[in-house]
Design a protein around this nucleic acid. Sequence first.
DNA 1: GTGAAAGCGCTAACAG
DNA 2: CTGTTAGCGCTTTCAC
Lengths: 333, 333
Amino acid sequence: MTKRPTSIKDIAREAGVSIATVSRVINGKGRYSSETEERVRKVIRELNYVQNSMAKTLKTNRSNLIGIVVPNITNEFFSQIVQHTQLALLKHGFAAFICNTNEDRELEHIQFNVLQSMNVAGLIYISGLLSLPESLMSIPTVCIDRKPIVDTMRNVSFVESDNLQGARLAMEHLVDRGCKRVACLSPEDQFSTHNIRFDAFSKRAAELGQPMDERNHLIVSRVSYQDAFDIMTDFFEKGGKIDGLFATTDWLAIGAIDAMKAKGIRVPGSVRVIGFGDISSASFRDVPLSTVRQYPEKLADASVEILLEQIKTGHTKEEHTVIPVELIQRQTT
Amino acid sequence: MTKRPTSIKDIAREAGVSIATVSRVINGKGRYSSETEERVRKVIRELNYVQNSMAKTLKTNRSNLIGIVVPNITNEFFSQIVQHTQLALLKHGFAAFICNTNEDRELEHIQFNVLQSMNVAGLIYISGLLSLPESLMSIPTVCIDRKPIVDTMRNVSFVESDNLQGARLAMEHLVDRGCKRVACLSPEDQFSTHNIRFDAFSKRAAELGQPMDERNHLIVSRVSYQDAFDIMTDFFEKGGKIDGLFATTDWLAIGAIDAMKAKGIRVPGSVRVIGFGDISSASFRDVPLSTVRQYPEKLADASVEILLEQIKTGHTKEEHTVIPVELIQRQTT
DNA sequence: GTGAAAGCGCTAACAG
DNA sequence: CTGTTAGCGCTTTCAC
């Protein structure tokens, strides 16, 4: 409807060459004299020509679009991954098509259709519902954070933080700080991440002589400050006694700490608390939170590298990549 | 390179009709018997056909892609706007192409090229650097949050929160709560938002008999927790005396509060503090922050509505839309 | 070294 | 009611 932008045709006419030649200099393929190159480039600059990537994709059947599917861009961890992924892709000449799913199956499905209709060359699937549709079967995919359901048919790799080691470090740190009675706060979760953390923490606790039981495993129905606050309050009101707490994610740790403060329980004086993730709110508190730091940038970079490799070679490496985490001691331990 | 997805041709062959007919039923345009419709739809379903939107765009020169340009998706306020915008667009049959610029001019430029090469039908420009390139001149645009530089040539509308009223409410609230000596904490900012808030606060303060001067206007070089913490600490160490503080954004308020706590100054006992924005960290604290709530969903919805109207009519309304804010009293006042 | 031409998936006249 | 056809911007053989 609107005026068509300047095309290869316009610049061909203006430069007095054929469109084929223009295409050649744009892509640096085939032969052309440096004279014509000069002339063509000049016209391109003058006319502010920008390639129509849709036409190119249509013709070549290879797009430089990568879909990024993410449940909730509002979550700091995810948004950092997304941001870095987009940047990394851009550096490699790929554009990112970012899709929010709000953890909603139907929305996810719609987004997949959009991605398919845009002919994406690959997919980065962050903490998804793992219901990748058949129609996207054949395109290279890397999952981040949540372990995908293994399907041998698919070109899927997996990248995650070292949740196992992180949880172990947390337990060890608590013991180092003198804790004798530790507890763990985690959400009931259908996905892998928190379960891995709890299991690893629990295992290490047992090894260090403080086996967990149901009394010191506090389970919250969602990841929510308020739920953490409430369950913690309840725990102490019922006479619960602990001197160390590991929350499988920072928001839960923060909710728990505020509950303790409200009850007059000193942190770290009476209870030492450590979280997981290192969201910005963790450090921006009057008593900054000790936590296990994740590296969203590294998750992003690794994923992009693997994905592009997959696209280039057409080959799945069936990779599982683990990004190290780091224990950050601040003032709650 | 990869196998081409099923196209209109495939389904035409399978249904025993021409591609034109298939196109007609897909778009619900022109005539076709309900029999053929039935048959075509069946094949479409069976073959999992998804329209190639790039080909469609190429042909019709009208895409259903809207570019969303945002400085930093990691900022909660922005990411909420982006999320809602994408959702709202989807409901209207448009897809969102989200671009991070990291407040970086060069990156912004690259992203604009990508958007142009994708033939976007419109632009939502959130708190941008306002350096919209000529090449995107003609496409409908709505700016959110930061006031764009007016250029009569362009199809630009502007949507923002009622910063003016918000700041006024904050001042009035402080007075209501008994404050006699108020201060304001804001970043030095080349853009409009914070300046508007400070000016409005300052003006209302004067009207209410507490004129501001340079001593009670604390200016921080960036929006940063640490900077707020430091400047506040410094303020009290130099013997500053106030009983009320308005920070033009929540993170600054939070930094200031923690500084006061560290100095043994009670909030709200000695100083009442109010922020602006209502980020999630504002309510998730041991002493939840009073603040002026913004409505990112409403900013998003209004922007989408205006943009789509502009696209549909091809007509700029040169609109300036103001979304109301609300004072949320929590426990820091 | 360069141009002509075909065709990617799709829509929109135009014929029938 | 349906089919044929041109052409969107681009790449890529194939001639010259």
